[in-house]
């Protein structure tokens, strides 16, 4: 794997060459006659940020569920860290527990609240720690879900289209937040997304899944912090969209 940012390349090359955090070899998953994942190979390096693109039904969610340990593969080699966690598309907060209790859910020991409060402060939700989840806005709820994932200090953070149901402005803010959190905590991240822009703004490496196979695996070379105006990003965006079957007609972005 190669990453253009020289600092990142140092980290990634030295770590992944030795031992990736996630290692999948010849992984298969069937549901009845449907072959969802076919002989899939994938390595995710320590602290690497990967975006997984693909059309609906390409197997993205199945792959994420396998990585999360919610689902079992039908064959192949599978290695993933025990300390992994997920932010789902819906916040999935327990409505009968206050925000901080949701974040502290399942944490051992008595310092659950302290750690929850720290995590909530980090995602900018310190003022809502004692609120009921039912009173949160969509963006706030997803921040709480991020805090709940972060507080576990995961080696692998899985994001399942986490911002798909947020409005455009909130989504931009959430991108900034995820980027900052990733730089602060350095987990390996796999984000499943439909949004090519999101992938290019956040990830070190973009994968594309089609009919259960990885059909594209390329680094995002643009320097961080990234903007969509970056010509390098623009070029890659056009190429990725074409691979996804979207022609550049009618696509004019400043």
């Amino acid at each position: 794997m190669s990453v253009a940012n020289p600092r990142l390349r140092l980290v990634n090359d030295s770590e992944t060459a030795v031992e990736p955090v996630v290692r999948l070899r010849q992984l298969n998953r069937h549901f009845g006659k449907n072959h969802i994942l076919r002989d899939l190979d994938l390595d995710i390096g320590k602290s690497e940020f990967i975006a997984l693109l693909g059309r609906s039904g390409s197997g993205k969610t199945t792959l994420l569920k396998l990585l999360a340990g919610i689902d079992q593969a039908d064959g192949g080699e599978f290695t993933a860290p025990a300390n992994r966690t997920v932010v789902f598309q819906e916040p999935r907060l327990l409505p009968w527990k206050k925000v901080w209790e949701n974040v502290a859910l399942g944490l051992p020991g008595s310092e659950g609240r302290t750690r929850a409060l720290q995590a909530l402060e980090e995602v900018g939700l310190a003022h809502r720690v004692d609120a009921w989840p039912g009173t949160l806005s969509g963006g706030e709820a997803q921040r709480a879900a991020l805090a709940r994932a972060l507080v576990r200090e995961p080696e692998l953070l899985l994001l399942d289209e986490p911002f798909a149901s947020l409005d455009a402005l909130t989504r931009i803010r959430m991108h900034g937040l995820v980027d900052a959190l990733w730089r602060a905590h350095r987990p390996a991240v796999l984000i499943v997304t439909h949004d090519v822009d999101e992938a290019l703004l956040l990830a070190d490496r973009v994968l594309m899944l089609d009919q259960g196979r990885i059909t594209l695996d390329e680094p995002v070379a643009a320097a961080r912090p990234r903007t969509l105006a970056d010509p390098q990003i623009q070029a890659q965006r056009t190429r990725l969209l074409a691979r996804l079957g979207v022609t550049p007609k009618g696509e004019d972005r400043p």
């Binding site: 999360a68 340990g69 919610i70 966690t85 997920v86 789902f88 999935r92 327990l94 859910l105 399942g106 709940r148 576990r152």
Partner: peptide, 8 residues
């Protein structure tokens, strides 16, 4: 499902 992921 979420609660299982969080190790309950």
């Amino acid at each position: 499902e979420a609660a299982r992921v969080f190790g309950l």
